[in-house]
């Protein structure tokens, strides 16, 4: 028993205790001296944000957004794509500010140049990154506007909302996972991916092509390219479709999802997603959720 309390034990307990005490005091003083006074509301707001740091709001992560919101003392002009208006409402409630309604958006791939429709004319070899392939050549299919299929967008997605379809060699966007952070939009060297309104019941109609070449040239490399014929233009009763540089574009603000234009497109370049199957003609890939 006595051995436990011999001189060495006592000495070490005392000396270590003393060192610990001094260190604690130093730490406390330093912490006081270098204390950064921060608005506690920033933490509160950050707490409510999803914490994905995706940068979809245009700022460098959730903390930056929280800081910006608190600094501005209002929610005007801020949005959190992954959290949607729900999160903004929550923040508004917690802080006592008015939060506006924001339309849910989603990434849409505007190219359908799969292996089937735009068969490879050459074989690409090298670093599997679109950024390089884009500098090197027009793409295996030969369309200088089309998807290169190296999957930089999939790589950029932080939410597992995309994957490369091995058969088509095109990326697929998963409706339920995409949070509209725009990472893929920024990454795509050809600006194929567009942010569009998510639409009622996830229904969307869009031109799945961005080829601005003349119809004949575009058709040569891809069977489902928009050839700029303007048929859809005539069909649309709501002035939602514009034709520029041999390319039709559907304005999602004006489109009423009436489904008149897809059947008239001679190259099936207009896609409709998540609609019930048409009665007469079997339509292409209604992605089932």
């Amino acid at each position: 028993m006595n051995e436990l309390f011999n001189e060495i034990t006592v000495l070490s307990v005392v000396s270590l205790g003393a060192i610990g005490g001094v260190a604690a005091i130093v730490l406390f003083l330093v912490a006081q001296k270098f204390k950064v006074i921060e608005d506690p509301r920033i933490d509160e707001v950050e707490e409510l944000l999803p914490g994905a740091n995706c940068g979809g709001c245009g700022l460098a992560g959730c903390r930056a957004l929280a800081e910006a919101i608190v600094k501005a003392e209002s929610l005007d002009g801020f949005s959190c794509p992954p959290g949607g208006s729900e999160v903004m409402q929550d923040i508004g409630k917690a802080m006592g500010w008015e939060a506006g309604e924001s339309t849910p958006m989603i990434a849409v791939l505007r190219c359908n140049g799969s292996r089937e429709f735009a068969p490879p004319k050459v074989k690409y070899e090298g670093a599997m990154t679109c950024a390089f392939a884009h500098n090197l050549f027009a793409g295996e299919g030969g369309c200088p506007f089309g998807c290169l299929g190296c999957g930089d967008c999939v790589e950029a997605c932080d939410f597992d909302a995309m994957y490369m379809d091995k058969n088509t060699n095109l990326p697929v966007i998963l409706d339920d996972k995409c949070v509209a952070c725009q990472a893929c939009v920024k990454e795509c060297p050809r600006n194929i991916i567009e942010m569009r309104k998510k639409g009622k019941k996830n229904r969307r109609i869009f031109v799945s092509c961005i080829n601005e070449e003349k119809g004949g040239v575009a058709r040569k490399s891809c069977k489902v390219a928009c050839i700029g014929c303007g048929k859809c233009l005539k069909e649309c009763k709501f002035d939602a479709i514009t034709l520029e540089n041999n390319l039709a574009y559907i304005d999602y603000e004006k489109c009423t999802l009436c489904r008149k234009c897809p059947p008239v497109c001679p190259t099936n370049a207009i896609h409709e997603l998540n609609f019930p199957v048409r009665k007469k003609k079997v339509e292409k890939e209604a992605t089932t959720e």
Binding site: V122, K123, Y124, G126, L136, E140
Partner: peptide, 8 residues
């Protein structure tokens, strides 16, 4: 067969 395209 298809021609190969790669960087130098």
């Amino acid at each position: 067969k298809l021609l190969t395209v790669s960087g130098s």
